[in-house]
Design a protein around this nucleic acid. Structure first.
Lengths: 217, 217
DNA sequence: AAAGAACCGTACCGTACGGTACTATAAGAG
DNA sequence: CTCTTATAGTACCGTACGGTACGGTTCTTT
């Protein structure tokens, strides 16, 4: 696998950055080769030389964006319950923040719009380089919690899906469909805490907050 | 509001049906006015007469599909716990079935792909005519459960989001990105029951299955 | 039966976009 | 200084698509 940092030259990164700006601003329709070349002050010929064709450019944009996401490692030490709760809450907060970000929304819209076509190569990339690693790391965190005796589950993936679902609900799809992200973003703080509370109620071994936590506002 | 059944003439419905087939088969790219006219044995001129322009056709497709979805009313009687559980399970099963359906996926992809453009009119339609009514009816069901003393929550929308999230997780987005729906569809039965179990653990007033239900299997 | 509307099929037009070719310029290598 | 390489800018080509116009056919209405 390529070392991520220098998958593209700095000049190419700058071009991809500009392409992302165009995509965010005007959607796929605005992402014409001529438009990218003009916005990035490069020639169309260079675009085709670097990325092959338009699809290659789209793929490169996803690749480039994925390479920017930082992976914070859960540091698999012994976890206290407060550690776990804090990690989970911060994961959910980050998740909501990322999913509601302009770049993520634009790229997801792009990949989803192309999913019916050409075997959905872009969609596969989004799954492999987006959801894949994130899910894997989070499941690792959950399993660390289980090893520390704080969580109880048999299927890590299922537990992860529950956490994700409690946190996101149908917000992601609604934002993809055009729900103003600002309107959704306000509640993220409380949403994160409530989701983690609910998750711990379902999968936690500690039962002391059983009654009140979930249904008080 | 139009009476839904005869928003379009039978001929127009047939054309829209054919357009949906095209969309499912080849995505938005395949949905050309000439292609629809050819597939439906109608003239382009008729298309423009009936639907105004291409965007009007897309909107009509969403409208038409929405009019086909039947609303099964929760019949707001007194609910037993078994009733509630059965209703919830069948809701979740239906939800997963619909979300994984070809037509739903194709229309969502279409609307999402256009969301950045033109104020996202299609996305708004999907939200208003898809998620809107479904959420409303389900919240009504939840509130019936609360009135019958089976559920306890303060915010119906939040409770609905939890149920939705536990049921769907990130499956919808993954399918939109190209995950084979058949692969996902196998687990729907168990998923539905587990989601309802978890939901009742969180929001139910009956505590007798507290321990084993959620984490077995 | 005659008149009119609706509609199919096709031909047509303008445009916009993906992709290619060519020229010019600037930088580095020898 | 010259040759090579890389790239910007522009011009160009073919195609495909949205939208319109028109002739011919079928169906409805009177």
């Amino acid at each position: 696998m390529v070392s991520q940092t220098d998958e593209f030259t700095p000049r190419q990164n700058a071009v991809l950055e500009e392409a992302l700006r165009l995509l965010i601003k005007g959607g796929e329709k605005a992402l014409t080769t001529a438009g990218v070349a003009r916005a990035a002050n490069c020639s169309k010929e260079s675009l085709y030389k670097w990325f092959g064709d338009r699809d290659g450019l789209l793929a490169a944009m996803i690749s480039y964006q994925a390479s920017k996401v930082r992976a914070y490692e859960p540091a698999g030490e012994k976890l206290t319950e407060e550690d776990l709760r804090a990690h989970l809450t911060s994961f959910v907060r980050d998740l909501l923040e990322v999913l509601s970000g302009e770049v993520s929304l634009a790229l997801n819209r792009l990949a989803i719009g192309q999913a019916s076509r050409e075997g959905g190569k872009l969609g596969q990339m989004m799954l492999e380089r987006g959801r894949g690693p994130v899910g894997k790391r989070t499941i690792a965190l959950l399993e660390a919690g289980r090893r520390s005796g704080l969580l109880d589950f048999s299927d890590g993936n299922e537990a992860y899906l529950s956490l994700y679902g409690l946190a996101v609900g149908d917000l992601h799809v609604r934002m993809l469909l055009g729900l103003r992200a600002e309107d959704a973003r306000k509640e993220f703080g409380v949403r994160a805490e409530k989701a983690v509370d609910a998750f711990l109620t379902l999968y936690g071994t500690d039962r002391k907050w059983e009654e009140p936590r979930i249904r008080s506002v």
